[in-house]
Amino acid sequence: MSDIETSTVSEEGYASTSQVGDFELTIDATNEEGPTPQQVLVADYAACYLPAFRVAANKSGVDDLGKVQIDADADMDDNDDVQAIRFTIHTETEIDDGDELVSKADDICHVHDSLRSELHAEVDVNGGAF
């Protein structure tokens, strides 16, 4: 049996609906009825990286980061393939060594491990936000 099972259906055109457990997500290559697959990839990466960053902080003795926000942006080539991803992490709590947390978060984030190394996000950490 598989660990993850999804079902994706498109009745016509370029929009599809993916069923993931009890959740439904509309993804549209034309960006009319939902986000594009590339946008979902970047958002999924950030959504995985944020809790990994929290765990990394906790393992480094930072008990509470407060509010955390990841602003993600990506570059695409002429074929609409994602070529680069960048994260800027804003934390409510001041961070002494953001590079240490990034290194640990890289090891924890499952999406990070799943992507080719050329597509790993470049990450900047900014404390004292909000």
Rank of each mutant, 00 (worst) to 15 (best):
G13I: 12
E12I: 11
D81Y: 08
S16Y: 02
L65S: 15
A57S: 11
T26C: 00
K104F: 04
S60I: 01
D80W: 12
T88Y: 01
I95G: 09
S18D: 12
T30R: 03
T26Q: 01
L50K: 15
D73N: 13
T93I: 04
K104Y: 10
K59S: 12
D64L: 06
D71C: 08
T93Q: 15
S16L: 04
V55Y: 14
A74Y: 14
N58C: 09
T93C: 03
T88I: 07
F53A: 02
S103F: 10
K104Q: 09
L41C: 10
E12R: 10
E32R: 05
D99E: 11
G66D: 05
E92D: 04
A72V: 13
D44R: 14
D78G: 10
Q19E: 12
H90V: 02
Q39M: 13
V102H: 00
E100Y: 09
A43S: 14
D63T: 15
N31M: 05
R86F: 14
Y14S: 15
D28P: 05
E12L: 04
I95F: 11
S60E: 11
S16C: 05
A57I: 04
V82W: 03
G13C: 10
Y49Q: 13
F23G: 04
V42H: 08
T88E: 07
P37H: 06
D96H: 03
I89Y: 12
L25C: 04
S10L: 07
V68S: 02
Y14R: 13
V68G: 01
D80R: 06
V82R: 01
D73Y: 13
I89P: 04
T91E: 06
D77T: 09
M76P: 03
Q39A: 14
P35T: 09
A84Q: 10
E11R: 05
D63A: 12
K59G: 09
E92N: 00
Y45W: 03
Q39N: 07
E32G: 00
A29P: 02
T93G: 04
L50H: 10
A56I: 05
C48W: 02
V68T: 09
Q19S: 09
A57T: 08
Q39Y: 03
E32Y: 03
Q38F: 00
D63N: 15
A56V: 06
D75F: 02
F87I: 14
I70N: 02
G34E: 00
Q83T: 13
E100T: 11
T36R: 07
I95C: 08
N58H: 14
A29W: 04
T93L: 07
E92R: 00
D99Q: 12
A57D: 12
G34L: 00
G34T: 05
D75N: 07
N31H: 02
D71L: 13
D77R: 05
S60A: 15
K59I: 12
D64P: 07
T17Q: 14
V55Q: 09
M76V: 08
S60M: 02
D64R: 07
A46P: 04
Q38P: 06
